[in-house]
């Protein structure tokens, strides 16, 4: 473990908590893409199938459980408890256009052609594009609540910090996982224009409005 990955994980956890609290406190999921949340739940489910068979550390197991429970909890709040506030008219990204190519690619490019490894690879590729429905929804509505932009900043920062972690691990222990690195770079690049807007607008107290 290194500080970059630890801060990255905490940033990821913070993002998930911010979103959960936003929905729970305001009793509304306006402006939040339920499709992205479904994809994130799918990412965690397919990635953590080894939760009970491959013990790494208490921290690792506890975080996996927290991610699984909170992401499924968010999907539950959005599609059941606060379904009336779910903005399905703007959450229209066709996620089959993500799941199918990602599924195909995970069969073609992976570390090992075994079910567990292919599902892990699927999870890594899917995570890199899972935010697209959310970014698409914001581009359609043209704006995002400030709390939602904080969520996105924390979520985008997590994988950016993981890239620093991979550089660090390459130079200190010679470890590198090309699949995770390439997918992580794609994932972080997708946030670039949001990061620009967040830093130039939200941090100056303005609301996040995308140029129409």
């Amino acid at each position: 473990m290194n500080v970059f990955r630890l801060v990255g994980d905490l940033s990821h956890l913070l993002a998930i908590i911010i979103l959960l609290l936003k929905i729970w406190k305001t009793r509304s999921c306006a402006g939040v893409s339920g499709k992205s949340q479904i994809l994130f739940s799918l990412v965690f489910i397919t990635r953590y199938l080894d939760l009970f068979t491959n013990f790494i550390s208490v921290y690792n197991s506890v975080m996996k459980i927290i991610y699984l429970v909170t992401s499924l909890g968010t999907v539950y709040l959005m599609y059941f408890k606060f379904k009336a506030t779910y903005d399905s008219n703007h959450d229209t990204f066709r996620i089959e256009f993500l799941v199918v190519p990602v599924g195909g690619l995970s069969f073609l490019v992976n570390h090992d052609f075994t079910p567990l490894e292919i599902l892990w690879t699927f999870s890594i590729y899917l995570e890199s594009v899972a935010i697209l429905p959310q970014l698409f929804m914001i581009s359609k509505t043209g704006e995002a609540e400030t709390i939602t932009s904080h969520y996105l900043f924390a979520l985008g920062s997590y994988r950016a910090l993981y890239i620093v972690n991979w550089v660090y691990r390459y130079y200190t222990e010679g470890f590198f996982d090309l699949i995770a690195i390439v997918a992580g770079c794609v994932q972080t690049i997708l946030y670039c224009d949001f990061f620009y807007l967040y830093i130039t607008k939200v941090l100056k107290g303005k609301q996040l409005k995308l140029p129409a």
Binding site: H12, Y67, H111, F175, F176, I179
Partner: peptide, 10 residues
């Protein structure tokens, strides 16, 4: 197939 790596990250 790429070199198998240990899965110790989240």
């Amino acid at each position: 197939k790429l070199a198998a790596v240990k899965k110790d990250e989240l």
